[in-house]
Amino acid sequence: MTSAGIRLWRLLAHLAIYGLAFLTIFPFVWMLSTSLKPEDEVFSWPPQLVPWPPVWANYADAWNIAPFGRYFFNTAVVAVSVTVVSLVLNSLAAYAFARLRFKGRDLLFMLLLATMMIPFQVTMIPTFLILKQLGWLDSYLGLTVPGFAGAFGIFMLRQFMLSIPEDLLDAARMDGCTELRIYRQIVLPLCKPALATLAVFTFMGAWNDFILPLLVVKSGEMRTLTLAVAALSSGLYVMSFPLMMAAATFVIMPVIVAFICSQRFFTKSIVLGGLK
């Protein structure tokens, strides 16, 4: 190929990829656009990408369709508590599996790995029955406790902790450190990168979860955001496209902003999630 031919080819490749990338985010662009249109402009021809003047009032109206403040609160409570508690419990267990000796350790670890292969369809019905037995349906306990520990988090943190030199821990033991202090003051600080990645992964999973809330929540006020969106889509509230897209925007945008701010962790945690 001539150098002009190569340049043309490269230009076309850029155009194709960026065109595809634009198509990828187009649904979000269109959502944003619809959310700022007056009701009667939604079906105008030609379709308008930038509505002018933007109808900001749609957002205020959408916020009042349903108790979204409550839904955000519920979702945040669930996501934060699942993330915090699971990081603590999983890292404690991971430390024991990585660096402590106890009877049955390897057998337990194998069993733990085996639980990673159980698909949710198999556990879904019994989990529902267990939560019902415990009286945890329609409560924060039911929405959070099943997520408080998981084999995947333990496995990942254990692998990371194996890279901490044993000598370092032995030195601390020699100085009379209890295992709990070693875990808190040496192991946890060294695990920060792994903990951060796992935190993003867990938080996202809990924030976006749909199946568990669908099983657990019965009343309107315990709904999480995903359930609220499902209710919106079933046409329970209004049939106004701008309002529905305004609601979708304030549900989706916090996650997009968080994603842009902490991309590094997001990408890493998604790859991790896939490895699960």
Binding site: I17, Y18, L20, A21, F22, T24, I25, P27, F28, W30, M31, T34, M204, W207, N208, D209, F210, L225, T226, V229, A230, L232, S233, F241, M244, M245, A248, V251, I252, V255, I256, A258, F259, I260, Q263, F266, T267, I270
Partner: peptide, 22 residues
């Protein structure tokens, strides 16, 4: 480009399904 392609992945399927319905 990588960021753009990746963006949908961080949103819950429920929310993106809602937008696609529209």
């Amino acid at each position: 480009a990588r960021t753009l392609f990746f963006a949908p992945n961080v949103i819950s399927l429920v929310a993106v399904a809602f937008v696609w319905e529209w």
